[in-house]
């Protein structure tokens, strides 16, 4: 026994001396494993337990998943999932229509495109919650500048409780989120347009193609991969949505859960928010696993499709 340890040690030292470069990977690997990989795997483990966060953990097999899909949480889960999908559809449509439209405009103008770029991107640099608090004031039903503006220009019927009406609340939040985020797809699309070889456009012009024909036959097909990349990001982004809803509606995602998404549901279940009696780390972990098992395959698939369209 005694003789074994020193030889092992020296062989380890020998290995390190030979592969000393591995020491440079170690800090990153350690941090990454401890704070990302390990918690992720642990999430899956937690999801099979009933646990309030303190005390003993009770193994309940697929019990948490049953609660989510068929039990007490079903109604909440389905509603939140629908809201997430709605958010994705709206977010993706807005970023495709307005993002691409404004990118084309930026691409075509001869002057000022740098200034526009800076302006368009500006809200992206601001914290989402702080943007939320700003709009919370602007959208205040009584004193907010949005309603005051509509009253001022005589469009009183547009003066509404934007965040208080269950029908309007989620679309309003998505509009605020577009206000903050649209600069990103605009600039990504612009970069994609600028990367299109000029010869293609020249050749089309020689063949007699004009404005919209060029857009339709040259630009659109060539920016499809970008559209899929942005679609993937939009999907991931909308399924991680939390900050803006928390800032504008609180953890209970009111009015009457009209803006509840998986992110806010997850937060309430896990850390206990207003209006929810169920508080559990195990159940929360199960929701996280469900979110992840929606996110991962879809974003993987979209990514593969996007690669297919690349030239």
């Amino acid at each position: 026994m005694n003789s074994e340890i020193p030889t092992r040690q020296s062989s380890f030292l020998l290995f390190i001396r030979k592969h000393n470069y591995l020491l440079l990977v170690l800090p990153a690997l350690l941090l990454y494993t401890v704070f990302i990989i390990y918690p992720f795997l642990n999430s899956i483990r937690y999801s099979f337990f009933e646990w309030s966060g303190v005390g003993p953990m009770t193994y309940i097999g697929l019990g948490n998943y049953h609660t989510i899909f068929f039990g007490a949480l079903q109604e909440f889960f389905v509603r939140a999932l629908k809201h997430n999908l709605f958010a994705f559809v709206i977010n993706f449509s807005l970023q495709t229509i307005f993002g691409l439209g404004l990118a084309l405009a930026l691409y075509a103008v001869t002057k000022g495109s740098n200034l526009y770029k800076t302006i368009f991107f500006l809200p992206n640099t601001l914290s989402t919650v702080i943007v939320g608090f700003l709009w919370n004031l602007l959208l205040n039903p009584q004193w907010g500048m949005v309603n005051r503006f509509f009253e001022m220009v005589g469009l009183d019927f547009l003066s509404r409780p934007w965040l208080g009406d269950p029908k309007l609340a989620l679309p309003t939040i998505l509009a605020v989120s577009a206000w903050r985020g649209l600069g990103f797809p605009i600039l990504v699309y612009l970069a994609a347009l600028l990367a299109i070889p000029e010869e293609y456009v020249e050749a089309a012009k020689i063949d007699g193609a004009k404005g919209f024909q060029i857009i339709h036959h040259i630009y659109i097909p060539l920016i499809l991969p970008t559209t899929f990349t942005l679609m993937t990001l939009s999907f991931i982004w909308t399924f991680n949505m939390f900050d803006l809803i928390f800032a504008l509606q609180g953890a209970s995602a009111g009015p009457n859960y009209a803006t509840d998404v998986l992110g806010t549901l997850f937060y309430r279940i896990t850390f206990g928010g207003m209006g929810s009696s169920a508080t559990g780390m195990g159940l929360g972990a199960a929701i996280a696993v469900v979110i992840f098992s929606v996110l991962f395959p879809v974003s993987y698939l979209l990514n593969r499709i996007s690669k297919k369209f690349e030239l």
Binding site: I36, Y38, P39, F40, N42, S43, R45, Y46, I236, N240, F242, G263, T270, M281, G284, A285, A288, V289, I291, F292, L295
Partner: peptide, 8 residues
């Protein structure tokens, strides 16, 4: 997304 591992 790291947020999903927030429980553990």
């Amino acid at each position: 997304p790291v947020r999903l591992a927030v429980v553990p």
